[in-house]
Simulated scan of single mutants.
Amino acid sequence: MDAIDRAILRELQKDGRISNQDLADRVGLSPSPCLRRVKTLEASGVIAGYRADLSAKALGLPITVFVELGLDRHTNETTKLVEDSIRAIANVLECHVLAGDADYLLKIAIGSLEEYESLIRSEIRSIPSVASVRTSFAYANVKEHAPLPVGTSGRRK
């Protein structure tokens, strides 16, 4: 991947609906080679897909909750059951496996505290082997959906 590929990736992260002509203009290529590079980046898996960025608040999901789950068992069968159960819960936006005190960290979008209580009682606590649930509510968002740093060590200059 060279500097032009990295420029393409930065531009696509800013605007995934940009036309090929505009993208080519921004990165200093003609349209045909630009499109070839985009197709190559897609085929190689660097570009994993395109999606619309929706407003949770506009969809009636104004509350963001982070939930740490602890398990009482860690067998392959248990973790598969837990992870399959979590994948099936629509309000769970992200699920990360952790090293440390908790086993999983969930990011949940929800409409109200009452809906959150219901979700915990009926869906999260009903997952076999979930031994602990620790909740943190986000009251502000400082940075969300940031583009991945392309061609850096993770630091922005």
Rank of each mutant, 00 (worst) to 15 (best):
M1C: 07
I4E: 08
D5T: 12
R6Q: 08
R6I: 04
A7Y: 05
R10V: 00
L12C: 03
L12I: 06
Q13I: 04
G16H: 06
R17C: 08
R17F: 10
S19M: 08
N20Y: 15
N20S: 14
D22R: 12
R26H: 07
R26W: 05
V27C: 08
V27L: 10
C34W: 08
V38P: 07
K39P: 15
T40I: 12
T40E: 13
T40M: 13
E42T: 15
A43I: 11
A43T: 14
I47M: 07
I47V: 13
G49Y: 06
Y50S: 08
A52E: 11
A52V: 14
L54E: 13
S55H: 06
S55C: 05
K57W: 08
L59P: 07
G60Q: 10
P62H: 10
P62S: 09
I63S: 09
V65Y: 02
L69S: 02
L69V: 11
H74R: 05
T78R: 03
T79V: 09
D84G: 05
S85Q: 01
S85D: 02
R87L: 04
A88V: 04
I89G: 01
A90I: 14
V92G: 05
E94M: 08
L98Y: 14
A99E: 11
D101F: 13
D101T: 12
D101N: 12
A102T: 09
Y104L: 01
Y104E: 00
I108N: 02
A109H: 09
A109T: 09
E114P: 05
E114R: 13
E114C: 06
Y116E: 11
S118D: 12
I120D: 00
S122H: 09
E123A: 07
R125K: 13
S126W: 11
S129A: 07
S129M: 00
A131Q: 13
A131K: 15
S132Q: 15
R134V: 11
R134P: 04
V150N: 03
V150A: 00
K157P: 05
